[in-house]
Structures are given as structure tokens and as C-alpha cells.
């Protein structure tokens, strides 16, 4: 799985950090930071959930 985040779209809801803290963080302004572009399988469910709840559709997933 490959993860991409679109920072200009992010509205700093923090939901991704709650869902998958190993993969997402926030900068000083609350905007999403990607910690791991290719998370290991154990995080895939959490990452999918994060993408599903992101209110700004700022998280894109690519299966590979």
C-alpha cells in the first residue's frame, strides 16, 4: 500500500492521527504529516479507516 496526503486540502481535523498514529502526524499548525509512505500490513486497516473518515478527502491510497 502506498499513501499520499494532500496538505493544501487538509483541514486539520486530526482524525487520521487518531486512527493511525504510526502513519500520520500533524505539523505545528495541525496540518497532516505523512510519517510512513509505505506502511506495513499491520497498519493497513487503520490507514483505510483514516482515509475513510478524512473529511477533506486529503488521503489517497494506492494498492500495489
Amino acid at each position: 500500500m502506498r499513501v499520499e496526503v494532500d496538505q493544501p486540502k487538509c483541514v486539520a481535523s486530526g482524525q487520521c492521527v487518531l486512527m493511525a498514529p504510526a502513519v500520520f502526524d500533524q505539523d505545528d499548525d495541525g496540518i497532516v504529516l505523512l510519517l510512513d509512505e509505505r506502511p506495513t500490513a499491520e497498519h493497513h486497516d487503520d490507514v483505510r479507516e483514516a482515509a475513510a473518515v478524512c473529511p477533506a478527502a486529503a488521503i489517497r491510497l494506492e494498492q500495489e
Binding site: A12, G14, Q26, D29, G30, I31
Partner: peptide, 17 residues
């Protein structure tokens, strides 16, 4: 909206909470 909202997002980041 985005310009103004971003002026006040900082204190609501998860780690600060």
C-alpha cells in the same frame, strides 16, 4: 474559509490536546 480556519487550527492539534 481555509485561509481563516488555518489561523486557528494550531491549538487543536491532537498532541496539544
Amino acid at each position: 474559509h481555509a485561509r481563516l480556519r488555518r489561523m486557528v487550527t494550531a491549538p487543536f492539534a491532537i498532541k496539544k490536546m
